[in-house]
C-alpha cells in the first residue's frame, strides 16, 4: 500500500505538454507585448503637458480661424516653426481681455522681458534635424504631423514622430501632398480632395524625391 507514495501521480504526465505550451506562449507574449507597449504609439502619442498659460489653439486657430503662420511665422523659411515671441500675443492681448487672470503670467513676463515657460510638446531626439520649411514649401501640410490642432483645447502629440513613421511618408509621399495654398488648412484632406493622378502631378511639380539616406535627417 505505502509503496504508492513513491510513484509519480498520474497528472504528472501533463508536465511535458504544459512545459512545451508555456515555452511557446511566454516568448510570444513577451515579444508581442514589447512591440505593442514599447512602440512610440504607446509611449509618445497623447503627450499633453500642462502649459503655464491655458492658451487654446481651438479658440485661436479654430474659432477665430487665424492662420498658423500669424504666430509661427518662421515656418516657411526656417527649420523650426518657432514659438512666437510674447510680443505676438500682445498684438491683441494688450487690449483684449487684458485683466483676465489666465493672462496674468503673459503680462508679467512681458513687462519683465522674460520668456513664457511653455512646455515643448513635439520633441524629436537631439540627433534628428527636421526642417519645417523643406516640407511646407513642397506641399506637406501642418496637419500631417500635428493633427487637428485647431480642435485642440490643449495641444497634444498626435503622431508617433518615430523614424519608421517618417520613413513611411518618405517612401510614399503622395498621399500627404496638397496644393501650397492649403498648407495651413487643417480640415483639407488630400485623399478626399484630390485624385491619385492630381497628387502625382503635385509630386512632379515640386520634384519630390524624398531621400532615405541617414545623413538627410541625422548629423
Amino acid at each position: 500500500m505505502n509503496r504508492q507514495h513513491y510513484v509519480f501521480p498520474k497528472w504528472s504526465n501533463m508536465l511535458l505538454p504544459t512545459l512545451i505550451a508555456v515555452s511557446t506562449v511566454v516568448p510570444l507574449y513577451v515579444v508581442l507585448l514589447a512591440a505593442y507597449g514599447f512602440s512610440p504609439k504607446a509611449t509618445d502619442v497623447g503627450y499633453q503637458p500642462e502649459q503655464p498659460i491655458p492658451f487654446s489653439h481651438a479658440v485661436h486657430a479654430g474659432q477665430l480661424g487665424m492662420d498658423c503662420r500669424y504666430c509661427h511665422n518662421t515656418v516657411e523659411v526656417a527649420a523650426k516653426a518657432a514659438i512666437p515671441p510674447t510680443q505676438t500675443c500682445m498684438n491683441c492681448h494688450e487690449k483684449i481681455k487684458k485683466d483676465s487672470d489666465q493672462l496674468q503670467l503673459l503680462h508679467e513676463t512681458y513687462q519683465r522681458g522674460e520668456s513664457i515657460p511653455w512646455v515643448r510638446v513635439h520633441d524629436l531626439p537631439d540627433y534628428v534635424y527636421f526642417h519645417h520649411a523643406a516640407h511646407i514649401s513642397r506641399g506637406v501640410g501642418c496637419v500631417s504631423c500635428h493633427g487637428r490642432v485647431d480642435q485642440m483645447e490643449v495641444v497634444y502629440q498626435h503622431e508617433p514622430l518615430s523614424m519608421a513613421w517618417c520613413l513611411n511618408c518618405h517612401r510614399n509621399p503622395e498621399p500627404h501632398l496638397r496644393p501650397l495654398g492649403e498648407i495651413t488648412n487643417l480640415a483639407y484632406d488630400p485623399m478626399v480632395e484630390l485624385t491619385a493622378d492630381e497628387r502625382h502631378q503635385l509630386r512632379k511639380l515640386h520634384s519630390i524625391d524624398p531621400s532615405q539616406d541617414c545623413s538627410t535627417c541625422h548629423r
Binding site: D44, G46, Q48, P125, D126, Y127, Y156
Partner: peptide
C-alpha cells in the same frame, strides 16, 4: 496608455542620445 492623453513626460526606455 495608447488611448489616453497624459501630462507626464514620455517614457523612453532606451535613451540613446535623445537628450
Amino acid at each position: 496608455m495608447r488611448t489616453s492623453k497624459k501630462p507626464q513626460p514620455r517614457i523612453h526606455f532606451i535613451q540613446d542620445m535623445d537628450n
